[in-house]
């Protein structure tokens, strides 16, 4: 599974991209709790948005190994 971290999320986690093999589907929140490196994401859960294959999801959405998950801090385009 591909994990992408944008803007401040990349600073919080210390990388822009991670590849992690996921054996079986589970909720995004359950997954994050299993990976210590992703602790900062849970700390910012209230402000961060998440997407699966470029569609917004929530932390309870089920994810699987073929997904591209992105962590999106508050946007500031325009």
């Amino acid at each position: 599974m591909k994990l992408l971290f944008f803007a401040q999320a990349a600073d919080w986690v210390g990388t822009k991209k991670l590849e992690i093999h996921l054996k079986s589907p589970l909720s995004l929140e359950e997954f994050i709790k299993k990976i210590p490196k992703l602790d900062p994401i849970l700390k910012h859960k209230k402000i961060i948005k998440v997407s699966k294959n470029q569609e917004f999801i929530n932390f309870q959405t089920e994810i699987q190994d073929s997904d591209e998950i992105a962590f999106l801090p508050p946007v500031s385009g325009g």
């Binding site: 944008f6 803007a7 992105a70 946007v75 500031s76 385009g77 325009g78």
Partner: peptide, 8 residues
């Protein structure tokens, strides 16, 4: 665009 689109 300013409130939703993933651009920073």
């Amino acid at each position: 665009i300013k409130s939703k689109v993933p651009i920073w």
